[in-house]
Amino acid sequence: MEWTIRSEEPDDAAGIAAVLTDAFSREDEAELVSLIRNSDTYDPELSLVCIEDETIVGYVLFSPVVIRAKDCDETPALALAPMAVLSKFRNQGIGTALIEEGIHRSYQKGTKIIVVLGEPGYYRRFRFESAKAHEIKPPWEVPEGAFMVLSLETNALRDVHGVVHYPEAFSHTTNTPQ
């Protein structure tokens, strides 16, 4: 099977929604992406699709967030959410390729920190580590170890701590990002 990864294009919205709905068995993530796509935080270069035979089979989005300390110091970062692959295309490396490309593009744009809420065993392969260990907290209650952080530059996490603040669109969905 041959597939390619590229930035989202204007005609991709329905295909992305189909992937997200299939992967999560609900529409919350598709609604989230639609809200972000129509906001001022959306960056099409960090909204990636995987295409096979002209069909979108995978998707990942990186959105700007800030890590806000108690003293109101803010550190910019990106949040990886959501990431999905059509169920019949899973376990073929598509999710890995999407995340690696997104991390690469994020770094190229000058991003130093990425956060993710997800399965620790999966995201550790990309060098994500416990956010709690760095005193970086999610704005919601999450399972122990599920909130992680990735430093894209040596010492990027030095003196960074606080609560991650997500774009407004994340507050409009009924579930936390996956």
Score class of each variant (00 low, 15 high):
residue 64 P to I: 00
residue 65 V to I: 12
residue 65 V to M: 11
residue 67 I to G: 12
residue 68 R to N: 07
residue 68 R to L: 05
residue 68 R to M: 07
residue 69 A to S: 15
residue 69 A to L: 07
residue 70 K to G: 07
residue 73 D to S: 15
residue 74 E to P: 05
residue 76 P to L: 06
residue 76 P to D: 13
residue 77 A to W: 10
residue 77 A to L: 11
residue 77 A to M: 13
residue 78 L to H: 09
residue 80 L to C: 08
residue 81 A to V: 11
residue 81 A to T: 06
residue 81 A to G: 04
residue 81 A to E: 03
residue 83 M to D: 00
residue 83 M to P: 00
residue 84 A to W: 12
residue 84 A to H: 07
residue 85 V to R: 02
residue 86 L to D: 11
residue 87 S to Q: 14
residue 87 S to R: 14
residue 87 S to L: 12
residue 87 S to A: 13
residue 87 S to P: 09
residue 87 S to E: 14
residue 89 F to L: 06
residue 90 R to K: 13
residue 90 R to P: 09
residue 91 N to R: 08
residue 92 Q to N: 08
residue 92 Q to I: 01
residue 92 Q to M: 14
residue 96 T to M: 05
residue 97 A to S: 14
residue 97 A to C: 06
residue 98 L to E: 07
residue 98 L to S: 09
residue 99 I to M: 10
residue 100 E to Y: 07
residue 101 E to D: 09
residue 102 G to P: 07
residue 102 G to I: 05
residue 103 I to H: 03
residue 105 R to V: 01
residue 108 Q to C: 06
residue 112 K to E: 15
residue 113 I to K: 13
residue 114 I to S: 04
residue 114 I to Q: 08
residue 114 I to L: 10
residue 114 I to P: 04
residue 115 V to S: 10
residue 115 V to K: 08
residue 116 V to N: 06
residue 116 V to Y: 13
residue 116 V to F: 13
residue 116 V to H: 01
residue 116 V to I: 05
residue 118 G to R: 08
residue 120 P to M: 03
residue 120 P to Q: 07
residue 121 G to D: 13
residue 122 Y to N: 02
residue 122 Y to I: 02
residue 125 R to V: 02
residue 127 R to Y: 03
residue 127 R to L: 02
residue 128 F to S: 03
residue 128 F to T: 03
residue 129 E to V: 00
residue 129 E to I: 02
residue 130 S to Y: 09
residue 130 S to M: 09
residue 130 S to E: 04
residue 130 S to Q: 12
residue 131 A to Y: 11
residue 134 H to C: 04
residue 135 E to C: 05
residue 135 E to I: 00
residue 136 I to A: 04
residue 136 I to F: 10
residue 138 P to S: 15
residue 139 P to K: 11
residue 140 W to L: 00
residue 141 E to L: 03
residue 143 P to L: 05
residue 143 P to K: 03
residue 144 E to F: 10
residue 144 E to I: 04
residue 144 E to H: 06
residue 145 G to F: 10
residue 145 G to S: 08
residue 145 G to Y: 11
residue 147 F to W: 12
residue 147 F to E: 09
residue 148 M to S: 04
residue 150 L to K: 05
residue 150 L to S: 07
residue 151 S to H: 05
residue 152 L to T: 02
residue 152 L to I: 04
residue 154 T to K: 15
residue 156 A to W: 11
residue 157 L to S: 15
